[in-house]
Each structure stands twice: as C-alpha cells, then as structure tokens.
C-alpha cells in the first residue's frame, strides 16, 4: 500500500543534482541573525530589483514630465520676459520653478509607490506573504519597502538635478542639498498615504482619488508656479499643510538662495519630519497588525 518510491519516476526527469549536492546553506542561526540585522535591507533589495524592471518607465515619469514643465513653463513663459526682467525672487523663471518641480516629482513618485504596490503586497499578488514565512518580520517588510522608496527618490532627484544643472538653473554645490530635501518631502507625503493604503481591504478607486484630489491640488496650490503669497489667504492654507510647499521652500533656498529665515527653515523641516514620523509609525503598525505575526 505504501510503496514509497513510486517506480518509473526516475526516468521522467532530472532533479538528482540537489541530492548529490555539496552545497549547503549557512546554519539557521546565521540566517536568523542576518535577517534580524539586515532584513530591512533585504526587502528593500527586492523592491529595487522590481523597480529596475520598470526603470525606463520610472525614468520617463520622474524626469520626462518635469522636463516638459521646464520646457513649457520655464522656457516658454520665461521668454515672455525681456532683458533683466524677472517674475519672482529676482531669478529667471526656470530657476524659480526648477526646485518646485524637483520636489513635486519626488512627491508624486512617493505617492504612487505608496498606493498600488501596497495593495499588491497585501492582496493582489500577496507579495508580503513571501518574506513573511522567512526570518523577515512584518515590521521589516514595511521598513524595507519604505527604504526602497527613499532610494528611488534619491536616484530620481539626482537625475533631475543633472538636467536642471544642464540648463544652468541651479547654484552648485549648495543646490545638491535639494536632493535629500526632495526625498524628505516625498516621504512626508508618501508615508501617511502608505499608512492609509495598508488599511484598504478593497481598492475601489481610492488611489485615483488620492492622485486627483490630494496630489493635484497640493501640486497646484503649493507655490509651485508662483509664490504661495500670490494666492488669496483662504487658499494659502493648502500650502501650509502641503509637503510640496514646505519642501519647495527649502529646495529654493538650497538651489538659488531664496530667502528663508532660520526659524522658518526649522518649521519647514519640522513639518516634513513630523509627517514622516507619523507615517512611519502608522505604516509599521498597520503592517504588523495586518500581517499578523509577532513583531
């Protein structure tokens, strides 16, 4: 009854190498120790690997669309001005909007990374279930995905900076500081959204609502194309709560010396950091509770 070596199967396929193998994995204790220390990075590594597949699309999206704004608005609008005439801050219009486009593009990238991929992890392809049965913890799954987004933002902002530099629209090297600033602004928007995404059981268009009714207004009313103070006061509050505005103020300061007082700079930074901290804690909490498990 229990004929344990079904006859005739050997001729069907190979598969013998595994059993003759001299390869052996390191001990489980080593796996556990390494995963405990570097697990977040292992998860990030996975995400970077998947992002690399869309490399061209991501690049087109991250650099191509701001480039269009640069050409259309910066150069097109800028050409309306004659001689030494400037619109804002006494700098060419391109110089004025480049920092805002850098930040907006990072915020947009972070927003899209914080929506659909999270749903893919929990539900659509149950991606999170893979690492969940390895020494990786739910907390590291959350952290790894966040880390990958940070890295993506740094890369895309660097590429963007190269383009802006080619147009001569940034003061270097101080302007380089705008790269981490853009990443901060991106995460300040992305992490709270990610925390929200982690609570969604069913995607019924919430993500496109986020794009249309959160990202777009913030993009348009954050002092992107003209200073926030040009808006009537009843619209300015949109900028005050917007990571795009806070990030843009800081990156304008870094990229061309836009006047930002020390305490103002601190407030901008503090707003971004608080949003990041809240988003980080909530995202982690939602991942841990939804992925069950112990930590």
């Amino acid at each position: 009854m229990t004929d344990r070596t079904p006859s005739g199967t050997e001729s069907i396929g190979g598969g013998a190498t595994l059993f003759d193998s001299t390869l052996s994995a390191h001990a489980p204790e080593v796996s556990a120790a390494k995963a405990t220390r570097f697990g977040t990075w292992y998860v990030a590594e996975y995400y970077l690997r998947t992002m690399r597949r869309y490399g061209d699309v991501l690049l087109a999206d991250a650099v191509g669309s701001p480039l269009m704004y640069i050409l259309a608005m910066g150069i097109g609008l800028g050409s309306l001005l004659t001689g030494n005439q400037t619109l804002f801050d006494g700098v060419p219009y391109l110089v004025f909007i480049a920092p805002a486009l850098l930040v907006s593009s990072a915020v947009q990238g972070a927003t899209s990374e914080s929506t659909f991929p999270v749903m893919d992890g929990f539900k659509w392809h149950r991606i999170y279930q893979g690492p969940l049965v390895t020494p990786i913890s739910p907390r590291q799954i959350a952290q790894g995905q966040m880390l990958a987004i940070v890295i993506r933002l740094l890369i895309q902002s660097s590429l963007f900076m190269v383009i802006v530099a080619l147009f001569g629209a940034v003061h270097l090297p101080a302007g380089l500081l705008a790269i981490p600033i853009a990443a901060l602004a991106g995460m300040a928007m992305g992490l709270p959204i990610m925390a929200y995404s982690a609570t969604i059981r069913e995607e019924k268009g919430q993500f496109s609502i986020i794009m249309r009714f959160i990202f777009m207004p913030l993009f348009l009313f954050s002092g992107t194309f003209y200073p926030l103070t040009n808006l009537p006061i009843f619209l300015q509050w949109i900028g005050w709560i917007s990571p795009i505005w806070h990030g843009t103020e800081l990156s304008r300061w870094a990229m061309y010396g836009h006047a930002v007082g020390g305490w103002q700079a601190l407030i901008h930074l503090a707003v971004l950091l608080v949003l990041i901290a809240v988003g980080f804690v909530l995202t982690r909490r939602h991942f841990v509770s939804r992925l069950g498990g112990t930590k």
Partner: peptide, 9 residues
C-alpha cells in the same frame, strides 16, 4: 534569488 536573500544567503 530574492527569497534566498531573505535568509541572508
């Protein structure tokens, strides 16, 4: 490969 990395291999 990705899965093996989760074990630090």
């Amino acid at each position: 490969y990705v899965y093996g990395r989760y074990f630090g291999l």
